[in-house]
Amino acid sequence: MSAGRYIFILLILAAGNLFSRKATCQSAEKRTTVPAFMSWFESDIVGKIHGPFSWQTDIQFRTSSNERNIGNGQHGNPWANPFQVVVRPWIHYDLGATGLKFSVSPMGYWATWNYYNGEDTFEPEIRSSFQVQYSSRAGRVYLTNRLRYELRWYGQEKPVNSGFHVPAGSNTDFFSDDSFKQRLRYMFRAWIPLSGKELVPGTWYVSTFDELFIGFGKNVTSQHTFDQNRFYAGLGMQVGHMMRWEVGYMNQVLPRFNQPPDYNNVELNHILATWLFFDNVGALFQKKSGQKK
């Protein structure tokens, strides 16, 4: 398939994201869109184990403004409130030239501060994930299709005063049957070099993706099957053979149907997203070939 067709698919997904946002906002009486501005930083650190095996650690730090339905200001400051801190490990098995990679994250931890209901609360989550990824090339365009299955257990939601405070007793009862949810995520992503045909050190590139989230299980109602959608476009640079960075804009749509106190809200988040990738962190500590001891 040509690069043009893959880019056309990505544009269709992005159009679907805009259509779903419009539809969810207009299809029900008194449904409102609640925007917020956010800053998300993520560092993905990858290291080799042996042969096709590698490890990865994702570290995420997210902050947010107040949403427009909260009347105490700070609506335009994406760093006004804590939102999430995440640590997630992975083990990968890469099939090399086939483009396939299988991954498992045995247990990651999410610390989430909520404030959309006008009351600050903290809710922790433990998550296990299974993933299959297919990477390919279409001319100069690098492509990735990724499917992820998530098992999610929530701790106790507790009120919190302010800041990155973790209230006592919140990290309990994770594995209650009533707190368990499941989710599927599909992402289609493209990297397009701007200053050449290969992602070699010093190359600037455009990165874009669309990711759809579908929730399911007995604790997920039919109104929340469509969990969210994320669309991202940004600019990055291949700094070295093992390090990249990106910065861009992400649009996140989250329906919050039948949830008090403001029923039928749709959250629309405008996100400044920054990534720092270490594709082989071990190489940073290796001596160059031929270097004297």
Rank of each mutant, 00 (worst) to 15 (best):
87 V>M: 14
139 G>W: 09
92 H>E: 00
253 V>T: 10
84 Q>I: 12
284 L>T: 00
225 T>M: 12
186 Y>I: 09
41 F>W: 15
253 V>K: 02
120 D>Q: 01
207 S>M: 10
13 L>H: 03
70 I>C: 03
2 S>F: 05
28 A>P: 04
17 N>S: 08
147 L>Q: 09
49 I>W: 08
281 V>A: 15
286 Q>T: 11
231 F>E: 00
237 M>R: 12
125 E>R: 09
2 S>A: 08
237 M>F: 03
146 R>M: 14
74 Q>S: 08
198 E>A: 11
191 W>P: 00
199 L>G: 04
36 A>F: 12
282 G>V: 06
261 P>H: 05
132 V>T: 10
184 L>H: 04
219 N>E: 12
63 T>Y: 09
165 H>W: 01
89 P>D: 03
78 P>D: 09
132 V>D: 03
104 V>H: 07
65 S>W: 12
1 M>R: 14
88 R>K: 11
238 Q>E: 03
42 E>C: 04
130 F>A: 13
48 K>E: 02
16 G>L: 04
48 K>T: 05
37 F>I: 02
112 T>M: 13
120 D>E: 06
222 S>W: 12
131 Q>V: 14
38 M>W: 15
116 Y>Q: 02
80 A>W: 09
39 S>C: 06
139 G>P: 12
240 G>K: 05
87 V>Y: 13
42 E>T: 08
125 E>S: 01
48 K>C: 00
22 K>L: 15
204 W>E: 06
138 A>E: 06
200 V>F: 10
30 K>W: 13
50 H>Q: 08
162 S>G: 13
262 D>C: 04
140 R>K: 13
110 W>F: 15
120 D>T: 01
169 G>N: 03
14 A>S: 07
182 Q>V: 07
280 N>E: 03
206 V>Y: 01
245 W>H: 08
81 N>M: 08
22 K>C: 11
270 H>E: 11
88 R>E: 01
126 I>W: 10
164 F>P: 02
20 S>D: 08
83 F>L: 13
271 I>V: 15
280 N>V: 06
82 P>G: 07
255 P>Q: 03
55 W>F: 15
69 N>C: 06
7 I>P: 05
47 G>S: 09
126 I>H: 04
239 V>K: 02
145 N>S: 11
49 I>F: 10
59 I>K: 01
29 E>I: 10
274 T>C: 14
12 I>E: 07
78 P>N: 08
148 R>Y: 00
